[in-house]
């Protein structure tokens, strides 16, 4: 199932919660993306960025076990890698210098993710992956 915008893309995933990371990794995988990571901490993420030759985009949680992930965003922006935040935080909780980073509120809507990262139109969601947008998929 090809996913315009995500298929074939190398996406860095930075998320400290194991189940959230695993769910999102699975969803990205099913959408045809190559998942780099996931990384659970700032150090780990920086290490992965240094070791990975190709990165097309990144989905980054803001709070990693109590530490803010701004260093990771800095490094990605310096390398020209499109990045979005995936977080339960409100815009106002984000440091002013990072308010221009697109924010995808949790639970993450993969289509919105793809749109924010690559301007793609829509991304099919694999059946059985429970990463719905909050207003859709009632039962």
């Amino acid at each position: 199932m090809s996913a315009p915008g995500l298929a074939g893309r190398h996406i860095l995933l930075v998320e400290d919660d194991y189940f959230a990371a695993e769910d999102l990794a699975t969803a990205l995988d099913l959408a045809g993306a190559r998942v780099v990571g996931p990384a659970a901490s700032v150090d780990q993420a920086l290490d992965l960025i240094a070791r990975t030759s190709r990165l097309d985009g990144a989905v980054v949680d803001i709070n990693l076990g109590g530490a803010m992930s701004y260093d990771v965003v800095d490094r990605l922006r310096a390398q020209g890698v499109p990045v979005i935040f995936a977080s339960g935080y409100d815009h106002r909780a984000i440091a002013a210098a990072y308010r221009d980073v697109p924010l995808c509120e949790k639970p993450v809507d993969l289509q919105r993710c793809a749109r924010l990262l690559f301007g793609g139109d829509r991304v099919p969601v694999a059946p059985g992956i429970s990463r719905p947008g909050p207003t859709r998929r009632a039962d």
Partner: peptide, 8 residues
Amino acid sequence: RPALAPAM
């Protein structure tokens, strides 16, 4: 502090 865990 948050320790460096092996990447999953």
